[in-house]
Write a protein that binds this DNA or RNA. Sequence first.
DNA 1: ACTAATATCGAAAACGATTTCGTAGAAAAT
DNA 2: ATTTTCTACGAAATCGTTTTCGATATTAGT
Lengths: 335, 335
Amino acid sequence: MAGIKDIALAANVSLSTVSKAINGKADIGEKTRERILKIAEELDYHPNAFGKSLKNKRSENVGVIICRESRPLSGNPFYSRVLEGIEQELDLNNYNLVLHMLSGEYRGKLPKMLRERKVDGVILVGPMQSHFIKDLESVNLPTMLVDPKVNENHLNQVIIDNEAGAFLAIQHLINNGHTKIGFNSDELDHQSFIQRYSGYAKALKHNSIELNEQYVNATGWELGYERVLAMLELPDPPTAIFSTNDINALLGYKAVKAKGLSIPEDISMVGFDDIEMATMSAPPLTTVRVYKEEMGSIAARYVLDELSENPVSDLTMTVAVKLIERDSVGPVKGA
Amino acid sequence: MAGIKDIALAANVSLSTVSKAINGKADIGEKTRERILKIAEELDYHPNAFGKSLKNKRSENVGVIICRESRPLSGNPFYSRVLEGIEQELDLNNYNLVLHMLSGEYRGKLPKMLRERKVDGVILVGPMQSHFIKDLESVNLPTMLVDPKVNENHLNQVIIDNEAGAFLAIQHLINNGHTKIGFNSDELDHQSFIQRYSGYAKALKHNSIELNEQYVNATGWELGYERVLAMLELPDPPTAIFSTNDINALLGYKAVKAKGLSIPEDISMVGFDDIEMATMSAPPLTTVRVYKEEMGSIAARYVLDELSENPVSDLTMTVAVKLIERDSVGPVKGA
DNA sequence: ACTAATATCGAAAACGATTTCGTAGAAAAT
DNA sequence: ATTTTCTACGAAATCGTTTTCGATATTAGT
């Protein structure tokens, strides 16, 4: 409610002096500064965001755009954690987060926050349509992609160390004696899935295990049930299955139960992501943990850095990953 | 990039005229309006949000404050859906959503968006500390609570028809022959849980079943495993268990499996909320669905309405609920 | 045809902050 | 003591809009 002019009046100084006192400028005497600051405190002064932004051309907002997936299962648990990480970092630096969800197909109309320049930077999380990204470049704001669908290598991005994670997972299975390892994934139309496949293949090769095409099934969306069911009905079924995300691993659980088998006695399962659900399943799922909040805060820190006086550009940063051993992996049967 | 004065220049009119044309004021000729609008279109003009807000004293933002729970399990899946509903409704009405998460204890410092009046209204989702709500009232913005912890009956709120939902669930169990029905809940410190308990009790009474105190266990947070385990170890264990949220129901699944029992053959389970996880469990969980997106959009619509010229105040609105029958309840054993 | 009403437009103030630049006085240098 | 350099402050412009109010031109009324 109290404005800068109320303070000026109370302190018997000019508007400029008040502004300088509050913004810590040098051009002001020490005693008057303290006096003004005290009065501001008493009046519970907070700068009006509009006036400030208008003059400074800074909103102190950063936009976050999330692709509201047609497939809510895999989208939600992952992205809401990333969002938390972003918010936390932004809040720490006194920035606001303005959120937008992209629904359906992009029709060439940028979100309001971008059109009206309500944000100083923007973070895109999840798979985005490429012509949206193209349009977005025209607004020319500091931008950061989090786990993008394709590698927009001219843009800044934070990605997951997918290959290493998958390698870890497969190696762990191999260490347990498994050699017949299934690969259960949604369509390989996302770089994360592709890289996880690559890690799978490399781990096999590294252990001189031949890749059996029958064991890799990467089709459709969230068809983990159908896919592992199909694998289990193979003449020579795998003894372990690696799923490129936890959702599909958990969907796979139902298939192995439907076949009357049990985890990990008959078949071992490993996932990827480490969503909350992974701890609740029976048995709790061994999976590779992705530090989602960290991805978010890295992205936020980066955008904030771009906004600072001397930004250091770093095009793509990869966040590490960790294998979390729970109870869904056991030694291969009859070993 | 293009401002109102660029248009004025191009159209050879004054700033005022441009503004009137764009904002659809009457005080302007039809031909000039069209001419100006066309030029604005060509120049891809979008009003500068700061200038506009400064003059209008409207940000066209609404704030959403979510309580980042210490218990991420129950918080996340529920609130992220509410958030989606809010965003969708706001977007439809050309408003932006600025998000803030309340972490830990409230230290008397309102979030930036409130202090600096960056939002025209605010939606609170989830359990909030009461002195935060008190402070919030001082900023005097249109406010809406979504599923608040306690009934802030002087504030506007959208709540769940918890009692009816629980009644439905219990009645469904009773229709399947169950009379020994457990009540598995987190601490009854949230009005939703209290009301669900009330529905539980009413349904029993309505069917002349005496409430057995041994069957009600409402302690701690997310101790569904421990609680149903305890119930199952009772001399005369229940044949069905109602959980006040899906998380605890699913946690209960693990306990019944640990006892070597199976669902729904040996014991029936019903949850509340209908989170995504409920469809993935084995067996899929029968639960009462809460329309989370709808709660969000109702809240948003309400705040928007308060902002309109002639608001209609409606203090608390209750959203209906629906029993979703899946595979976790069956007839009572030996019936 | 003359006045009155109406329609269309523009000049200028306002919103709340920041910043540039000028100026008065004090301190330092000569 | 005079000039020069600093220091501390204020007046005014500015950011991009909207709005009020006055002015002109057009139309209607008599």
